[in-house]
Amino acid sequence: MSIPLPSVLKGLAALSVGIAAGYQFFSTGTTRKALLRPPGALDEPEFLSHCLRCGKCGLACPYRVIKYDDSLSQGTPYLIAREGPCRLCDDFPCIAACPSAALAPVADKRAVKMGIAVIDRDLCIALQGMRCEVCYRVCPLIDEAISIEYSLRKGDSHHAIFEPVINAEKCVGCGICEERCIISDPVAIYMKPRGS
């Protein structure tokens, strides 16, 4: 038998309100940190009320990097950049698959705003003079979102520092740099999700 559409929508509406309420309840007084959402995600409160927890974005992702299994996210999609960053597919299949526009279409990869990369200056070996800059070379927006600034290494007139510098305006927060960083536990470059 078929389901009358209006009652479905009423049910969804009730659901959304419930979830939004739930989020409000749980976001106060807890140490919950922001999650890295898939590309095109609305701002967090809107995202949470639009997301149906249907799991279709994860199915659509050709790299299978969208996760759901943490109950704290209440079934909403998120990425752990270190394990599986967003590859900024030209056609954004995750966004195309989302039935509720919780992931809204973006003009192109430069319009994505998942978050911003942050470099831990104590851990980054490039800042000590080692020739690394893996993060720089793997960036899909190389020389736009991330560039190299050159300076003389302190106390060494013979060698330069090749410092990777993030452009916060241009960085889309895809997380590829975090995935590839050769420093682990903790990584020297990590995503600060939008909204955190």
Binding site: R32, K33, D70, I80, R82, G115, C181, S184, V187, M191
Partner: peptide, 10 residues
């Protein structure tokens, strides 16, 4: 504890 989306690398 989720520290954003980072940390916990292998």
């Amino acid at each position: 504890d989720q520290t954003g989306s980072g940390g916990g690398g292998s």
